[in-house]
Design a protein around this nucleic acid. Structure first.
Lengths: 357, 357
DNA sequence: CACAACTTGTAGACCGATCTACAAGAGGAG
DNA sequence: CTCCTCTTGTAGATCGGTCTACAAGTTGTG
């Protein structure tokens, strides 16, 4: 009952060959721009292709040659930073014969593996992956047969390429900004779940370590406060509300990403406070951060540039490059109105009152 | 020099057959859960599969059978409504053997065709598409060989399924809300570009027509004001700024999507006004709309539900259903603080002054 | 005990491309 | 004119699965 998968309309290379009066091999040569084709034959074949509306089967191609498909594994779509990557990659491959295909991976731990494997199973010619959580050894195994570019990984393997922004530098910018404004009670809200075991080299970990180092350097080691929430705005909102209810709440929060930073902003508003009371810094510079209603100070890592660069590296690998490349992009601090100098006395009094009730 | 595409590690069905001491056909049966397999053989084969780490090649499978791949064509990632669809579809196929794969299509006109075609070329078992712009006739041709579910299309074909929200009802909710607040000068900002020729049946068109009808019904036909901007927040921002500079600016703006509504909000802030001066209503209820800094009144069309429903319909089609199904989801108005009663005298005076300078 | 019906596994064609090896013909050199 | 090289096109193996047809064995029935 199910419709036939190859209906009458489906035209194969054989049909084109018959129409043009040549062999299958000849048609194959023409569509691949291979050597050994006379202009006359090329023309006849192209005419036949056009006339019949022929489209090569990617599956059949994949069995021997290339699929002209690049796979991107993405762990999250809610965070618009990730979607910027796609925009960058899309434009980078726009006038290549390659088609981009995205495999969504849920936040859960195993999903990164599943999605990348699914792409490899589908014979993509190369993979760009954004899961910082998968093991390096496993990736190297994949990379042995399929070119791989990893985004946001600081562990430099010589089997795959990496593109990262300098998370240490970015986090330093954020912390210096808060310290220069005069903040001393600076909390860090990280997307690393409490008590999770995680590779070092993951952006969040580097941002966390940089926070710690900056606090120590400033002689504020005793005032460090790190809250590990998972992924998502909602979790950050809850954690921030709890934090603001503390007897001694922080005067500034540095969040590991913009998304949780939005949650903090929401919590600040919910608590009847403003960013004059509690400064907030994010990381990513997602689109909405610049909106006047949000106006979040954050660290910009140019997502489109990262995505485009990753795509270019992947194309180079496919073209034959084997020496690894590891690109680092410099982040920039974007100061908006979510960060202000602290109001020491008034604020702490007011917040203490809030904590008491 | 390029790495071999099928390295030493690549294990085929033949290897598994040898390891288990059975035929290729037997292994094939086991992995497809086909009839005619004894428990003993199943066990041996599964053990061999596990031992060798065998993964079936999707390309090879695609040549005869299924690829267990569902394709989603998406025109936009910046708009988080679209990404919600993915979340819904992902959960809907989570415990099916199918893998979701997304093909990005740029905003430009031809891109929808290109992306859908790319998916079909890759032998996906079914397609969910969100491009309202592609021609129905072309889609029906595609649908003849590959099951298709269209999102956000009101033209009910009997060759493919559709899932839409009731755009007319949603737009009516928005308009009624503004009218009940007392607004009379209501402008409509639509993502339809000026002077574009577009299928009726496209959500934006239906929202536009509903706006017109509501204005006429309320006796405000002469006060209709429609501005066609393209896609994107920035374009809406520019258009809104121009509109607010008018001698007689509107007291409320109904935008065809949340994204341009954000642009209007930004323009309102830039002009030194608030939503007390100019009310704004969007459509989609994207995540950020609920944030206190934005607090946009909008029409919620449950993206996740739409996506999940589309995926379910697609799975049904793949399973053999041939009668078309056309699902309509009822939207809901979400009132937040971006809509307030108009301030007739003060506002117009102030705005007029603004227009004069 | 003969024959039917069912179960279990295999052989081999097939899907639609790519790609190697080679044949036929054209042009050039000596 | 012969031999060599280069160009142009073809035949046919090959990729890794699926699936049909069938053989062999097992169980049931009258």
């Amino acid at each position: 009952m199910a419709a036939s998968r190859t209906p009458a309309g489906s035209v194969t290379i054989q049909d084109v060959a018959r129409e043009a009066g040549v062999s299958r091999a000849a048609v194959s040569k023409v569509i691949r721009n291979a050597y050994g084709v006379s202009p006359a034959m090329r023309e006849r074949v192209n005419a036949a292709i056009k006339k019949l509306g022929y489209r090569p089967s990617v599956s059949a191609r994949g069995m021997r040659g290339a699929t002209y498909t690049l796979g991107i594994e993405l762990p999250e779509f809610a965070n618009s930073f990730f979607t910027r990557l796609i925009a960058g990659a899309t434009t980078a491959v726009a006038d290549s014969p390659y088609q981009l295909v995205i495999a969504p991976a849920d936040q859960t731990h195993q999903e990164g593996y599943r999605a990348i494997q699914a792409l490899v199973d589908r014979q993509v010619d190369g993979v760009i992956a954004v899961s910082p959580m998968v093991e390096s050894a496993w990736l190297e195994e994949i990379a042995a047969s399929t070119p791989v570019v990893m985004l946001g990984r600081h562990d430099a393997s010589d089997r795959y390429d990496t593109v990262v922004n300098d998370d240490a530098a970015g986090a330093r910018l954020a912390m210096r900004h808060l310290l220069e404004l005069g903040h001393r009670d600076i909390a860090h809200l990280t997307s690393i779940p409490e008590k999770a075991v995680i590779d070092p080299g993951v952006p969040q970990v580097i941002r966390l370590e940089t926070y710690r180092a900056a606090m120590e350097e400033a002689g504020l080691g005793s005032r460090m406060r790190v809250v590990g929430v998972g992924v998502g705005e909602a979790a950050a909102h809850r954690a921030a509300l709890a934090m603001l209810g503390d007897p001694e709440p922080p005067t500034a929060v540095f969040a590991s990403h913009d998304e949780p930073a939005l949650g903090v902003l929401r919590a600040v508003a919910d608590a009847g406070l403003t960013t004059g009371d509690v400064s907030v810094v994010g990381y990513d510079d997602i689109e909405i951060a610049g909106h006047p209603g949000i106006s979040l100070t954050t660290v910009n890592q140019d997502g489109e540039r990262l995505g485009a660069l990753a795509a270019r590296l992947l194309l180079e690998r496919i073209a034959g490059r084997t020496e690894p490349r590891h690109e680092v992009i410099e982040p920039e601090l974007v100061v908006r109105s979510s960060t202000r100098p602290p109001r020491p006395s008034a604020t702490s009094a007011r917040l203490r009152a809030l904590g008491d009730r």
